[in-house]
Design a protein around this nucleic acid. Structure first.
Length: 179
DNA sequence: AGGGAGATTTTCT
DNA sequence: GAAAATCTCCCTA
């Protein structure tokens, strides 16, 4: 996990293939393999940290390996993994994971039976039950778990989505899935 | 299968 | 007061 201190862009690429989970109160793991990420840092007009530290983005200025949960569009939560050195204001948005553990719980929470369980940042938070109360938690020192990759993926870089500024950076990383 | 609108409220200016 | 690192539904083909 030392690579998380390297900076958001490097970390975003290297996080592809890692397992991301939340541990339920009863010990059950819910989550799966990360297959899509986006990097945000302080040089980046699309980043919450661009204009400096605020009440909301304060976790982005913490140590690598915490999580930053934000609320957006009046109804959705999204999770980031904080990267870089303390006070650098960077993080990696987890955009998509492969549902592998706790699928039944995910289906209940998402009210979906098969597709679309975790293929979007707000969907992941819904499926894993991540919300404001998880903000600033330390990964692997709480109920938020990150596990090393089991297999390697080929990775595609693209432009990020859902932003209006700095749209040309190729800071979105997607695992190529074999069919 | 793809596009457009509406939902809904926090956050910062 | 406006915009927001989004999702779902409903429409058209």
């Amino acid at each position: 996990m030392e690579f998380l201190e390297l900076g958001a862009v490097t970390a975003a690429e290297r996080l592809i293939g890692w397992g991301f989970y939340k541990r339920e109160p009863n010990g059950e793991l819910v989550g799966g393999t990360i297959i899509e990420t986006e990097a945000y840092d302080q040089t980046d007009a699309a980043s919450h940290s661009f204009n400096g530290k605020t009440l909301r983005n304060e976790p982005m200025f913490g140590k690598a390996g915490q999580i930053y949960v934000y609320f957006t569009y009046g109804m959705h939560f999204c999770v980031n993994i904080v990267t870089g050195k303390k006070d650098s204001g960077e993080a990696v948005l987890i955009r998509s994971i492969l549902p592998e553990a706790g699928i039944k719980l995910m289906q209940q929470r998402r009210k979906q039976l098969k597709e679309n369980l975790c293929n979007g940042p707000a969907k992941i938070c819904q499926a894993l039950n991540i919300n404001r109360s998880d903000n600033s938690k330390i990964i692997n020192n709480s109920d938020i778990i990150l596990m090393p990759p089991i297999k390697k993926f080929k990775i595609t870089k693209t432009k990020r989505v859902g932003i209006k500024k700095d749209i040309d950076r190729l800071w979105r990383f997607i695992a190529e899935l074999e069919s």
